[in-house]
Design a protein around this nucleic acid. Structure first.
Lengths: 118, 118
DNA sequence: TTGTTTTACTTGTCAATAGAAAGTAAAGTG
DNA sequence: CACTTTACTTTCTATTGACAAGTAAAACAA
């Protein structure tokens, strides 16, 4: 992933810029999980893909900083943190669906996880 | 990027599988350029984003191996190689358009490069 | 109230990858 | 026969990723 903050963008192409923002192996999976209703660190860790905790921590912080997700304390449990999508994060549903469709058609033996059935 | 070949997939999720296949900073930009009609190594190197030649070589080889692009010799010049999209590569136009739309709306100051005007 | 568990991280280590710059080799051109 | 073009390859360094272990604060259980 790219260092966050004011780095020189590679170009003004919307594809390049979007890849600079979320073009790695984990960001979209975190956004997928939050879109499915997961809220907490350990729920995200338990996803099938097996993200390492240091990587998850870094990505969550990063996604907050770029405004795709937000982080709120739980009301009833001071240890708990609730992560959720911002409006910008939710708007990634379009690309996400296009990727899902492509994957289902072009990568053998892929299937939607039950929680994603539409 | 992930090592190519028979690696254990992270999950059967079409998003995860698609990211395993092309989820990095360069693959989609190469596919974009080929979709725009570029054919040769040096045309790809000259793109605004400035890919290093060693990285481009590796990605071209990889994208051939996974069947998203194909490599053919030129008829008139034995040095020249013509890269182009396979049918599977062309089918990435859907995700690509979704990403373009998202980028244009959500990343400030992005614009289509002239060749992409639709 | 003391020990255990839960939650959300942080740290350390090692291997793999990315990126920059320079070099190379075969084919074509004047 | 020198020079250029094309498509790489090599070398080096710095960053990142994966894995394992550790930590700290809050909550719960006895």
């Amino acid at each position: 992933m790219r260092k966050i903050g004011p780095h020189p963008r590679r170009s003004d192409c919307p594809i390049a810029c979007t890849l600079d923002l979320i073009g790695d192996r984990w960001n979209l999976l975190i956004i997928r999980d939050l879109a499915l209703g997961k809220q907490h660190f350990d729920e995200l860790v338990e996803s099938e893909e097996g993200i390492a905790t240091n990587v998850l921590t870094k990505r969550l912080k990063y996604l907050c900083e770029v405004g795709l997700i937000k982080k709120l304390p739980s009301e009833d449990d001071a240890r708990r943190v609730c992560y959720s999508l911002t409006a910008a994060g939710e708007s990634l549903e379009g690309p996400l669906e296009a990727i899902i469709d492509w994957g289902l058609e072009n990568v053998p033996n892929t299937r939607l996880i039950p929680a994603m059935a539409r």
